[in-house]
Amino acid sequence: MSNQRQSGGVGLFDEAGVERWPDALAGARLHVVTGKGGTGKSTLAAALALALAAGGGRTLLVEVEGRQGIAQLFDTPPLPYAEQRIAVAPDGGEVRGLAVDAEEALLEYLEMFYNLGLAGRTLRRMGAVEFATTLAPGLRDVLLTGKVKECVGRTVGDDRRGRGPRQPLYDAVVVDAPPTGRVVKFLDVTKAMGTLARTGPIRTQSEGVVALLHSPQTVVHVVSQLEDLPVQETLDTVDELAEANLPPGAIMVNRVRPARLPVTDRVDEGGLRAGLEAAGLFLKDDEVGGLLTEVDEHTERLAVESGVRSRLDAAGMPQIELPELADGVDLGGLYELAELLREQGVRHDR
């Protein structure tokens, strides 16, 4: 990979001296990842699941929007409604993946309390299950977050045969959540429950979901990019999360490109031409002009970036930075991002 990073990694602390991955984040067990569409939210959720599993852990990466994004990222066949091993983490450890589906989750509930047998499939084919999940706003979200909570809380015996004292099955669960515009509604289970029956199995489970989401076990990360709109949406989301009393995690600034030329360096055509010739490059006028256009655009971009950076800093949250990968994101790129996360202190304290 020929990608060049800024002076070899960005370290454990940001420029303002804020720790990028404080202990509170390392202790969390449910990591919810949101971000404006197109900022790389799913990619970073996957890289985070890899980084948190590193060194012998086990994490679960969950997607909730029915896009089969995990399968695409890890280059595996579409995931069924079952947890499956999708990757081996750096230095040992594994990542499992799960594509949660509201209709399957509803059927799962019904199976627990009513014996529907094979008819469950028929009901689904008829569209009855989908219909039921759309009857009450928020039921779908309650079902999805309910399944996530069940995964976080699941335990296994700690010896090889599954006996002995029980331990959590997953060190951490990472959710590739809906984008910024919809995430607070997705997580605001209390509100969604307003439309459901006052008693019953889902009600009970939802109360557990609310407790988990508002506990220090949960953190919500927001993926951003150094541009106007993504930063605006990030800040709006941070406010909304605070209002809904949901615990903030880190701002993950994605696709940071290197600052090659400080804004203060003026580039003049004569100097550039002389420099190019010294490097053995004898370029035509329009070539030199093209390079100068690129310099202008770079300068313009840096000005925008410095403006939005100070707005992000004002949010007072830990910040993680990830570079744009030259080769795009493939499986190798995911591991590279996971490695960069670890260099910034991203870990799970077991």
């Binding site: 060049q4 360096d265 580039v267 100097g271 420099g275 190019l276 490097a279």
Partner: peptide, 28 residues
């Protein structure tokens, strides 16, 4: 290559940076 040559010869740092910038853009 040009950037590397300039950097090795302690030549004009600004030109080297312009060349690196261009190489980034080509990559993107």
């Amino acid at each position: 290559e040009g950037a590397e040559a300039l950097e090795a010869a302690r030549g004009d740092a600004t030109t080297a940076a312009v060349l690196r910038l261009h190489a980034d853009r080509v990559e993107t």
